[in-house]
Design a protein around this nucleic acid. Structure first.
Lengths: 212, 212
DNA sequence: ACAAAGGCGTACCGTATAGTACGCCAATGC
DNA sequence: GCATTGGCGTACTATACGGTACGCCTTTGT
């Protein structure tokens, strides 16, 4: 009777199921990132959902599958945040400064650090995870940045060099300070001032190294 | 009767105890680095030792204390390996190339990667560990390198800049390739060729950025 | 309105783990 | 030599977790 009840061939049942699935992933996401894999319990997730364990298992047949689904979604979100960090501007210096600033902002956010920790910490138990994470997050960013650098090199704004290697170097330069300290738990939050200075320093060195 | 039986005021009892303690730490070290914290069980360690659980607990009153002792020893060993990577030679370029090569060799070794993974993965559960690791391994190396760079800057061989920041940048440049791939489990062992090339590339960029 | 699907609550199973208790025996110190 | 220390072996406790089973009830599609 009401066409807007079912604008797409999805019934309320399927819609509810999708919503529920997202809710589970939200809770599991938080728990895995906050506590790590081992310390996250299925019972706690079910309890936190308000539902029963049977329901949880009807969505995800095992803890490993739930973990995989969480990481799949998390890396997708991460990718979406990171990929748009490179907004070409007029000059190479301005573009790279903006990139470094945004890149550092993203990777020093609390959940990015927690995700990174989780992926590295469980890389032996879940080898696929490391691969997926890499190809979605740092790999994609590196490829985007490399494409930009290659164009800049072609225009003579930077000296000719391997754009992928250059891209990796710039990203490495960005990750040596706050990010490292966050990973090791030396600090809880990166001070804005430190991020700005660090991005500046990284790009300055990079531009000296790759001046035309 | 025999003075060499007790050259120091340690009886055979204490000596045996120290030996046993080392043996426990050896086994625990391997297990923690190979399997991670959660997947390492005290029972397995006791069984692998050939001894009984009572003995194990008489040395380390809990799994957490054993873990702390293992990491304490492991970071000390790591420090010993890393700290001597900087052997000043005639020219700055030669010195830094030698440093980068040795540094990369050390940090891409299997146990170094496993240790790094472990420290990062458990940084939330054991916050002290991250601090200790940092001050012993990367912090110490960075300080040594910074001292060398500062001297080179004073001699006019490099442009004047913050030596600590420069030190961190060189180390970051070394850690962006193989080390990253090892951490994420993309590769199991760093090819020698890649290490050499990467060290070369890192130092080249560094020297361009900090040329006098 | 009615039947089916699916969530809920709870109790349960098997297993694994940190940590304890205790009796026995060999190594150790005097 | 002899008493004691300490490791050995084993059995045990308590607990926690992943995963299952099942009966009840609300929501859903027709």
């Amino acid at each position: 009777m009401l066409p807007q009840d079912c604008p797409l061939p999805i019934g309320r049942r399927e819609a509810n199921r999708a919503t529920r699935r997202e809710a589970i992933l939200d809770v599991a996401h938080r728990s895995f990132l906050e506590r790590g894999y081992a310390a996250t319990t299925m019972s706690a997730i079910a309890a936190s959902l308000g539902g029963s364990k049977g329901t949880l298992w009807s969505y995800f047949a095992s803890k490993e599958l739930l973990f995989a689904a969480v990481l799949d979604r998390a890396t997708t979100l991460f990718q979406a945040q990171i990929a748009q960090a490179l907004n070409p501007r007029d000059g190479v210096a301005d573009s790279l400064h903006a990139f470094a600033r945004q890149f550092l902002d993203r990777i020093t956010a609390a959940d990015a650090v927690a995700l990174y920790r989780l992926v590295i910490g469980e890389a032996r138990r879940f080898p696929e995870t490391g691969r997926i994470f890499h190809e979605r997050a740092p790999g994609r960013t590196r490829a985007l940045l490399a494409a930009y650098l290659e164009a800049a090199m072609a225009r003579g704004q930077l000296r000719a060099a391997d754009p992928m290697a250059a891209s990796r170097q710039l990203m490495s330069l960005c990750m040596g300070g706050c990010h490292q300290q966050l990973l090791l738990g030396l600090i809880d939050k990166a001070p804005r001032k430190a991020i700005v200075e660090e991005a500046e320093l990284a790009v300055d060195s990079f531009l000296r190294a790759y001046a035309a």
